[in-house]
């Protein structure tokens, strides 16, 4: 599972950790995050994230 980076604030979404405060279970791949999920750090949408190698 790949990590994704917020292009606005550089927060990194790590699928192994998920986003428990945002209701996302550990082990959730980025692609399976709900459409209305937002960056936990700055609040922008999923479309502003980029995949990390």
């Amino acid at each position: 599972m790949k990590k994704w980076k917020c292009t606005v604030c550089e927060y990194i979404y790590n699928p192994e950790l998920g986003d428990p405060d945002g209701g996302i279970e550990p082990g959730t791949p980025f692609e399976e995050l709900p459409d209305d999920w937002v960056c936990p750090q700055c609040g922008v949408g999923k479309d502003l994230f980029e995949e990390l190698d």
């Binding site: 606005v8 604030c9 937002v38 960056c39 750090q41 700055c42 609040g43 922008v44």
Partner: peptide, 9 residues
């Protein structure tokens, strides 16, 4: 209208 990062969260 929420405008996160225009220019703070």
């Amino acid at each position: 209208i929420e405008t996160p990062m225009l220019h703070w969260p």
